[in-house]
Amino acid sequence: MTARSVEHRLTDRYRTVDVPVAGGSLRVGVWDALDADGAPVPEAPTALLVHGVTASHRSWQLVADRLPRVRLVAPDLRGRGRSHPESPGQRPAGMAQHADDLVRVLDHLDVDRTLLVGHSMGGFVGVVMADRHPDRVSRLLLVDGGLPLAVPDGLTADEVISYVLGPTAERLAMRFAGVEDYYDFWRRHPAFAHDWSPALEDYLAYDLVGEEPELRPATSYDVMSCDTVDLNTGTALAGALGRLRHPTLLLTAPRGLLDESPGLYEADRLAAMLEGFDLIDSREVADVNHYTITMGERGATAIAAAVEGELAAS
């Protein structure tokens, strides 16, 4: 199946809307809830899905496939996908700006309160949003993100980016002659050696902007840089975690961005961190890495089950 046919398959319940925010708009993917007969379910529960640092809302497709009875709202964060508003201040983004953008999304779609599901950087955004706007979040589901990463002290901004993201950031400067070239780049990436899928191809095709033969990833390096530094060395996250008041479930991957072990949250270090958080439960998703915990079949199945459990608990 090609990326084009995946796009066609999405149209039954999937749509996009553009939501006004400071400086422009955000592109937001919405998967409407359907009943067993394929009819819309207006009273269905809603989950807000927040993607990672260089991703887009399309990274949630496999999860959406497994949650037909849940209304899913997933924005392209500022500086990613089709969301490139002008910066409203001196800094191009940061956790607080993304958190406030998410409130605009909820307002636009008449969502009063929601389960917030955040992968990677989306988990950090979720923690800050829950702190800044506590009445808009019922519970937090953090997916391999949201708690501090093991980053050495004293690194410059570029060194933090290189240490945390490595090739993920480097590809933002690359150019690709066509979509197939971009597929080939990711086929060589160790994270997807065993988890290639049509949904992944759709996500990757959506990630490219520009014209052949100069296609490029959609993520803004400047926004990504600001965000990476903010979530690792800024004050918004530390303060939000210190005031955490929402029940939180953290799902972790045993392998990292390059499919290496351990993953971002090594077991002993994570256990030590969690001693200070009574509201956070944690469990590991078996046999996934930082990417495939959302964009692989096993990971998507585990996240969907966790979403259903957290919605029931709400």
Rank of each mutant, 00 (worst) to 15 (best):
V288W: 04
G123C: 07
L172T: 12
A44D: 06
D110L: 05
A130L: 07
T252R: 00
R80N: 13
V127Q: 06
T2A: 01
G81A: 05
A218V: 02
D227E: 14
L142H: 04
P45T: 05
T294R: 03
H133V: 10
T294K: 01
E211W: 08
A99T: 05
A169C: 06
D37T: 14
R139N: 05
Y265A: 10
V30N: 09
A304D: 00
V307N: 11
A286M: 04
R269I: 01
L109N: 08
Y182V: 00
L215A: 12
V41M: 06
R139T: 05
F124T: 09
M174L: 13
M174V: 03
R255N: 08
A93H: 03
A306K: 08
P167W: 11
T156F: 14
R27I: 09
R91G: 01
F277D: 11
V21H: 08
Q90D: 11
S314A: 13
Y203L: 15
D107Y: 09
R132G: 12
A96T: 08
P20E: 12
A236F: 04
L270G: 09
D135Q: 10
A236I: 13
L172S: 07
A96Q: 07
G94E: 07
G94N: 05
D144T: 07
M121H: 06
G166M: 11
G242I: 02
R175H: 08
L311C: 11
R245C: 09
P134N: 07
N289E: 02
V70R: 06
G118Q: 10
E43W: 01
I161Y: 08
M95V: 06
A177I: 15
V285I: 10
V143D: 12
V223S: 06
T16Q: 12
V63Y: 04
I293A: 04
V229Y: 06
R69Q: 03
I303Q: 10
V285E: 00
R243Y: 10
A3H: 14
H119G: 12
V229F: 12
G24V: 08
R245T: 03
H98A: 15
N289D: 09
G234Y: 14
S5C: 02
V105R: 09
V21W: 05
L237V: 15
S220T: 05
D222P: 07
D227F: 15
H84Y: 04
